[in-house]
Design a protein around this nucleic acid. Structure first.
Lengths: 209, 209
DNA sequence: ATAGTTCTGGACTGATTTGTCAAGAACCAC
DNA sequence: GTGGTTCTTGACAAATCAGTCCAGAACTAT
């Protein structure tokens, strides 16, 4: 009956996301987006609405993906929860350097560029941050149950600390560009968490393997 | 002989800096800058050159100020060095919330917006980061000499960790907007440093005062 | 006061911006 | 095939952008 779209919606959103992450919201023109997606302006407008809506769609898609990643990375059995926290911190560095353009966390980027002026972006970021914090918190509680983290310290506070460290690692990795140094910082950040003696033993074993 | 400028150069740079920090580099037009400074385009161009030069001047002025602040905040006698590190971390949160527009660290903002594409900005940021790290390192060494921080751990690594935590506190404060919660995170971040027993006593005294 | 110099504001240009629109191409159901 | 619908492309308009320029204002040294 009707002609189907000649593009994959998710693929376009990924290309749009990449362009916005490279050049920022204000620094990205519709021509840039057309070039990045290979689509004409009309197609983009018909499918996603104006520039701001298109951005929100791409940003939302990133956040969803990010949340799925965190769920997968932080969930699991209690006796490996501490190691998962360590991987989470280390990955905050490696994701920056693994990317060909050294793109860091998109939520962080637009928290800095837009959150002060754009309410829709700000609320989405808060939601994303809240979910991440919740998942880290569950992982912290798991590590506490396993006897690997000091149970005296409120899990929520530790989770906030881990998330804060993770964002710090991301942004300083971008700014400094020193990969091996930042990996060492990530390890040091992890080591500064209130590990129990059992926790230290468990990590020593996990790292040796 | 000649008419003197009717504006204070430093005052203009401060207004320019504020505007760029609010709306970003690409998101700030020359009309915005004229409105923020009260000057016409001709005056701005004659005094500072084009938009990019004007930005670099304002950014450089910020970095200088930032470095002076760090020098003042981190220098002092060994027996109070640990407390200075604590204040440094706490101030990473309070500077965000003390500002009427919740503007965070400018170097961080433009590390995220521009450092990937603008070499001049990237090198200035690296220089700023290096200086900051050096000052924090000296403060860490002072605290180690005072017996307040574990002397076994390389001061450089601890300094990197403190700087990373500080930037994390800054950006998460902007993103979350939760002031008291972030102050608690700052305290927790400080407490997670490898304090000696003497260090803990010294801090308990300092906080009680 | 006056002359000489510099500063100031805003008009102007050409390039770039976002968003719209219409003409034609592509596709599916029949 | 054919008709009806949707998709696609690029041209277009209105607004905004950075940067230039000039006429007039302001100031100082004499």
């Amino acid at each position: 009956m009707a002609r189907p779209p000649g593009f994959d919606r998710q693929q376009v959103l990924t290309a749009v996301e990449r362009q916005f992450r490279k050049t920022g919201y204000a620094g990205t023109s519709l021509d840039d987006l057309c070039a990045a997606t290979g689509l004409g302006r009309g197609s983009l407008y018909a499918a996603f609405g104006d520039k701001h809506s298109l951005f929100l769609a791409a940003f939302g898609s990133y956040c969803d993906r990010n949340e799925s990643f965190a769920t997968a990375a932080l969930g699991g059995p209690d006796d490996h929860a501490l190691e998962r926290l360590r991987c989470f911190l280390v990955s905050s560095v490696s994701t920056v350097f693994d990317d060909s353009d050294r793109l860091g966390c998109m939520a962080l980027k637009f928290a800095v560029e837009l959150a002060g002026e754009d309410e829709a972006v700000a609320t989405r970021i808060k939601q994303d941050l809240g979910l991440l914090q919740g998942m880290v918190r569950e992982c912290v509680e798991a590590a506490q149950r396993a006897g690997h983290l000091d149970p005296e310290i409120p899990a929520g506070e530790l989770a906030s600390l881990v998330v804060t460290m993770s964002r710090g690692l991301d942004v300083v990795s971008q700014a400094s560009g020193a990969e091996t140094a930042m990996q060492a910082v990530a390890e040091r950040a992890f080591a500064s968490l209130p590990l129990t003696a059992a926790g230290r033993r468990a990590i020593a074993v996990a790292v040796a393997v």
